[in-house]
Simulated assay, not measured.
Amino acid sequence: MQNILETQSILDKHQAERTKCLVYTRVMGYHRPVESFNIGKKGEHKQRQHFTEK
């Protein structure tokens, strides 16, 4: 719990310096920002398994 509070304190302190990060994903052959998804598609995106191919 202490670690979460420390992290939140650091984030709050540097809020003015932060920039928004857009996450894109490939959908049906083209890239789209995840923030434009509807609530159901956002839920599916969070459940995806990420992997690194060797």
Rank of each mutant, 00 (worst) to 15 (best):
I4K: 14
H45A: 14
V27Q: 06
H45S: 07
S36W: 15
I39V: 13
L5I: 09
K46M: 10
K42I: 10
R48I: 06
P33E: 07
M28Y: 08
T25Q: 03
E6M: 06
S9P: 01
S36M: 14
T7V: 07
Y24M: 01
F37M: 15
M28G: 11
K13M: 12
R48F: 04
V27E: 12
L11G: 10
L11V: 07
K42G: 01
K54G: 04
N3E: 12
F51L: 08
S9M: 10
T19I: 09
V34T: 01
R18D: 01
M1D: 08
N3T: 03
Q49R: 13
V27F: 06
T25H: 02
R18W: 03
T52Y: 15
H14M: 06
H45G: 02
R26C: 13
G43Y: 11
K13G: 08
C21S: 05
C21N: 02
M1R: 03
R32L: 14
K13I: 06
G43M: 11
E35L: 06
H50E: 07
E53P: 07
G43L: 12
E35W: 10
I4S: 14
Q15T: 09
G29Y: 00
H31E: 15
E53A: 10
K46S: 14
M1S: 09
M28L: 11
T7F: 12
N38L: 03
H45C: 13
F51S: 08
D12S: 14
G29T: 02
Q49H: 13
H50T: 09
I10M: 06
K54N: 12
R48Y: 05
T52F: 15
P33L: 03
N38H: 05
T7Q: 13
H50I: 04
E53S: 11
E44Y: 07
L5W: 07
Y24H: 04
H31V: 05
T52P: 00
T7P: 00
F37Q: 04
C21E: 01
E17P: 00
K46Y: 11
Q8I: 10
N38Y: 04
Q2H: 11
T25W: 02
L11M: 12
G29H: 03
A16I: 02
H45F: 15
E44R: 09
V23Y: 00
E53M: 11
R18H: 02
E17A: 03
V34Y: 02
E6P: 00
K42V: 03
Q15P: 01
V34W: 02
S36G: 08
E53Y: 13
R48N: 07
H14Q: 06
L22P: 00
V27G: 03
Y24G: 00
L22N: 03
I39Y: 11
C21K: 00
T52G: 10
M28W: 05
K20D: 01
T52L: 15
Q2K: 10
D12L: 13
L11A: 13
Y30C: 05
M1H: 04
T19G: 03
I39M: 12
H14S: 04
H31S: 13
